[in-house]
Simulated assay, not measured.
Amino acid sequence: MVANLKRFTVSINQDMEVDLNKAKKETYYKETQSEMLRDLINRGLASLKEAKDSNRNKSV
Rank of each mutant, 00 (worst) to 15 (best):
V60K: 09
R56C: 03
M1I: 06
N57K: 05
L48P: 09
K22F: 03
M1A: 03
L45N: 10
M36Y: 02
Y29G: 07
L5N: 14
V60F: 11
M1D: 05
L5V: 13
N42A: 02
F8Y: 11
F8C: 15
N57D: 07
N55A: 13
V18P: 03
F8D: 08
I41T: 13
L20D: 03
L48T: 10
I41L: 14
N55H: 09
N42Y: 03
E35H: 08
L20Q: 00
S11K: 10
K25M: 08
S34F: 08
R43L: 01
E35I: 06
S54A: 11
L45A: 12
K24E: 07
K58Q: 03
K30P: 06
M36R: 03
S11N: 13
I41V: 14
I12A: 06
K58E: 09
F8P: 04
V10P: 02
V18I: 14
S47R: 15
L40F: 06
L20G: 03
R56Q: 10
K6T: 08
L48N: 13
S59R: 02
A46M: 07
A23H: 03
A51I: 09
E50A: 14
S47G: 14
L45E: 13
N21K: 04
N21L: 10
L20E: 02
D53V: 11
D19G: 00
R7Q: 15
I41N: 04
K24V: 08
R43C: 02
S47A: 15
E26F: 05
E31F: 15
E17T: 06
S59W: 01
A23V: 01
S59T: 00
N4W: 11
L45W: 11
E50N: 12
S59M: 01
K22P: 00
A23Q: 00
T32K: 09
A51T: 14
E17D: 15
A46S: 10
M36I: 06
S59V: 01
K52Y: 10
M16C: 15
N13K: 05
R7A: 12
K58F: 02
L37M: 13
N42P: 02
N42H: 03
K22T: 07
A51D: 08
R43A: 01
D19Y: 00
S59N: 01
N13A: 03
M1W: 05
A3C: 05
D19V: 00
K24W: 06
K24N: 05
S34H: 14
N21Q: 04
Y28I: 04
V2R: 08
I41G: 01
Y29D: 12
Q33W: 12
L20W: 00
N42D: 07
Y29I: 07
E26C: 08
E26L: 07
N57V: 06
K58W: 01
L40K: 00
T32D: 07
S34N: 15
V2F: 13
V10W: 03
K6W: 07
S34Q: 14
M36W: 01
D19L: 01
R7E: 15
E31K: 09
G44P: 03
D53Y: 12
E35V: 02
T27P: 04
L45V: 15
K30H: 12
S47Q: 15
N21W: 04
K25V: 13
T32V: 04
N21Y: 04
R56K: 05
E31D: 15
S34I: 10
N57M: 06
G44K: 01
G44H: 04
A3M: 07
V18N: 13
N57I: 03
D39W: 00
T9K: 10
E31A: 08
A46Y: 09
E50M: 10
